[in-house]
Amino acid sequence: MASSSSSSTKGYVNVITLRCPNHPDAELVEDYHAGDVVCMECGIVVGDRIIDVGSEWRTFSNEKDSKDNSRVGAAENSLLEGSDLSTCITMGSGPASFNENGRPIYNNRRNISSGDRALMIAFREIAQMADRLNLPKMIADRANTIFKQVHVSKSLKGRSNDAISSACMYIACRQEGVPRTFKELCAVSKVSKKEIGRAFKLILKIINTSVELISTGDFMSRFCSNLGLSAAIQKAAIHIADKAVLLNLVAGRSPVSVAAAAIYMASQASDDKKTAKEIGDVSGVAEVTVKHAYKSMYPKAHDLFPEDFKFCVPVEQLPSM
């Protein structure tokens, strides 16, 4: 084996360059199994005992059908108390501790505290909700942080972790400017709207945080997009909702109901009409609620539409309910 070495001018780094003594310009190939570097021309071993820095793909579990044999593990989670890095390998006792050949079975068991176990279950639930709602990981991370703060405070002990997780996701969505309704959270979780609402109010007091007030504009673009409505109808619906709130026509009604009623009014005046039931299914508002909100807005319909709106149906011919 022959090699030439070169060092930097300051002497801090020594770099060894491997070359074949017979073919200095030949390409060298690394044999990962044997740890050798071999010349492609003559087959001479130019270097040995090469360290493989890749992942180790052996498995030490008892599951022969395991699909992922990587031992690199998951990324460290700073929200867990044990940093998610502790591992304990022990040999059990009794007949079940030996396989059919009489060899001991080693159990690769991670030492997870009860606190970390509860956090991991909650984080998994939050990730599933974010996936079902098509939300980015950033919002799930914020919800995880909020849940961690609640968990550390120990103020909601005894309450359902599912309700707390859903409330944390609801708060995270509002703080990130992409609010979701309680009904949307109910559809992707295991708890009722009432439970999420209670947990939401308690969490705001516990972690001393606040959320921005939601408005009709927060939901309008998403609802219109799901209904397949044009940008012109969406613009008209936003104007109708804002004007109805300004004229105090929908006092006491939720922004979601007002948004649904505004979309119904704008669509009925256009060539792409949507029924109250279709809008209710998308917005999560009952059909009756949409009609009641629309009925409150109908007497002032002339003043609600934007000036540049192109009517396919005159205001006088809109449904009066």
Rank of each mutant, 00 (worst) to 15 (best):
S3M: 10
S4T: 11
S8Q: 10
T17S: 10
T17H: 12
C20T: 06
E27Q: 08
E27S: 09
Y32T: 12
A34R: 13
D36V: 05
M40A: 14
E41I: 10
C42K: 13
C42D: 14
G43I: 08
I44F: 07
V45A: 09
G47K: 11
W57H: 09
S61R: 09
N62G: 14
E63R: 10
K64E: 10
D65R: 12
N77C: 09
L80S: 11
E81L: 11
S83R: 15
L85N: 12
T87Y: 12
C88F: 13
A96Q: 13
P104C: 05
Y106S: 08
N108A: 08
I112G: 06
S113P: 08
S113G: 15
D116N: 15
R117M: 12
R117E: 13
A118R: 15
L119N: 10
L119T: 02
L119Y: 11
M120K: 13
F123R: 04
F123G: 04
R124S: 13
I126V: 11
A127V: 07
Q128S: 15
A130I: 03
L133W: 05
L135D: 00
N144R: 14
A163R: 01
A163C: 10
C168M: 07
I171S: 03
A172H: 03
A172C: 11
V178S: 14
P179K: 04
F182L: 15
K183A: 02
C186R: 12
A187G: 04
V188S: 06
E195C: 06
L202N: 09
I203M: 06
K205C: 06
I207Q: 04
N208R: 14
N208A: 12
T209Q: 13
I214E: 13
S215L: 04
S215V: 06
S221L: 09
C224L: 02
A231C: 05
I233T: 03
H239L: 00
A241D: 03
A244N: 01
V250H: 02
V250T: 15
G252K: 07
G252D: 09
R253M: 14
S254I: 02
V256G: 00
V258L: 03
A262V: 02
I263V: 14
M265D: 01
A269S: 15
T275M: 03
K277N: 07
I279Q: 01
S283Y: 01
G284I: 00
V285I: 11
V285D: 02
K295W: 06
L304I: 05
L304W: 03
P306I: 05
K310N: 12
F311H: 08
V313H: 00
P314K: 07
Q317A: 14
M321V: 14
